[in-house]
């Protein structure tokens, strides 16, 4: 596992959070069954989102394909979304890219299986 320095780097002490809490609140409120959020809950969610971004970026980088050590690519993210338990909720928005050719092939294979 990776991301040991989550919360270490990139958390300036002079300011509590770098993401705008007002925006985070807007996103939270877009959830239909949420009525009220107290200030501490909003702060914690904002902070957690920052930790999450750090963690996702670092995990993806460390588990990267190694093809290009100096670039974090989309496929690194898709791989980690698929591979790590707590990132599973991301698989819908981080689908793995596959070639149309391969997709059609897998469709065919599935069809053959069904036919058997």
């Amino acid at each position: 596992m990776s991301g040991d320095n989550v919360g270490g780097k990139g958390t300036p002490n002079n300011k509590n959070v770098s993401l705008p809490m007002s925006r985070v609140k807007l996103i939270m409120k877009s959830s239909p069954d949420v009525s009220n959020i107290n200030q501490e809950a909003l702060f914690l969610t904002t902070k957690a989102t920052e930790l999450f971004v750090q963690h996702l970026a670092l995990s993806s980088y460390k588990n990267g394909s190694g093809k290009d050590k100096n670039t974090l690519s989309y496929s690194d993210l898709a791989n980690v979304a698929e591979g790590m338990e707590n990132f599973q909720f991301l698989t819908d928005i981080l689908p793995k890219k596959i070639l149309a050719r391969d997709y059609l092939k897998s469709l065919e294979e599935r069809q053959e299986e069904d036919d058997l």
Partner: peptide, 15 residues
């Protein structure tokens, strides 16, 4: 993708 993931994270955590 990370930015979208962060928004989804907020929604998931909120829920």
């Amino acid at each position: 993708a990370i930015s979208q993931a962060a928004s989804v994270f907020v929604l998931y955590a909120t829920s």
